[in-house]
């Protein structure tokens, strides 16, 4: 039986981790490679690296960052941010990513998902789905793009199904309402998307403690992603795995 994955997320801009990070024993806490290796040593099951660079120069850094992280990393790494064509995915995979996530560009041109899946395999193609409860208070969630600045009106559940049908092998599901709030994942959203597709679902957005991650798993998530709870040293990966295990969830130890 495959175990539930605990996944730290690094936001990287121009080759540096941008969310504040306070690890002890790291001389340079903004270095993505050092952080990544530290997380592997702690027992992280996988790593997500999101490139939030705004410029083409920054994106050039991303490929070099992926290569530097990969040299010393022995666990899977998903890389996302700015992938607009299959060749962008190819460059990241060639540098050492194992999976590539697509977001806004796939909403604008859904064939991007099929192109990546056909060329590199479904297991490489991750849909990053940012969803928000409907602004008009209607039922369900809508897809948001451009880092949350634009609501599309598209139904999130329908988009998840379509993406899986086009070959996405995994869905990285972020609640835009909860991200950064620390109030826990949107469990209804996690449950709805997990039920709607057969591919694995990574829950993201809103965690401020191990209990939130356990709740997401109970709602149906196959993996749980968090950033700040790990970066600020509030919790180690082991703390989260202890909580999951105490809750009857199988984890890799």
């Amino acid at each position: 039986m495959v175990t539930v994955r605990v996944i730290p997320c690094l936001d990287v801009r121009d080759g540096r981790v941008v969310k504040g990070v306070k690890f002890q024993g790291l001389r340079d806490a903004g270095d993505p490679a050092g952080l990544a290796w530290n997380y592997e040593a702690q027992g992280a099951d996988e790593l997500v690296l999101l490139d939030v660079s705004a410029t083409p120069e920054g994106r050039g850094h991303a490929v070099r960052t992926v290569a530097a992280v990969r040299a010393g990393l022995g666990i899977p790494m998903t890389v996302g941010g700015g992938v607009r064509v299959a060749a962008d995915a190819g460059a990241l995979l060639e540098a050492g990513a194992d999976k590539v996530s697509v977001n806004t560009a796939a909403v604008e041109r859904p064939a991007l998902i099929s192109e990546i899946a056909e060329r590199f395999g479904s297991q490489c193609a991750v849909l990053a789905l940012d969803a928000a409860r409907r602004a008009d208070g209607g039922p369900g969630w809508e897809v948001v793009v451009l880092s949350g600045t634009s609501r599309t009106g598209m139904d999130a559940i329908g988009w998840a199904r379509e993406a899986a049908g086009r070959g996405a092998g995994e869905i990285l599901l972020t609640s835009w309402d909860r991200d950064g709030t620390g109030t826990g994942y949107d469990l209804d959203l996690v449950a709805a998307i997990s039920r709607a597709v057969r591919v694995p679902v990574i829950a993201s957005g809103g965690a401020s403690g191990p209990g939130h991650l356990l709740a997401a798993v109970r709602a149906g998530a196959d993996a749980v992603l968090a950033a700040s709870i790990f970066h600020y040293g509030r919790y180690a990966i082991a703390d989260v795995k202890d909580t999951l295990e105490a809750g009857g969830v199988r984890v890799r130890r």
């Binding site: 495959v2 175990t3 994955r5 297991q123 092998g169 995994e170 196959d222 993996a223």
Partner: peptide
């Protein structure tokens, strides 16, 4: 879930020299 993405326990059968028990991705 398909694809299987994640860590699963590997249990070697009789005669394995290289393979040991543990979690693999």
């Amino acid at each position: 879930r398909v694809p299987q993405l994640g860590w699963n326990r590997v249990v070697p059968g009789p005669g394995c020299r290289l393979l040991e028990e543990g979690f693999a991705y």
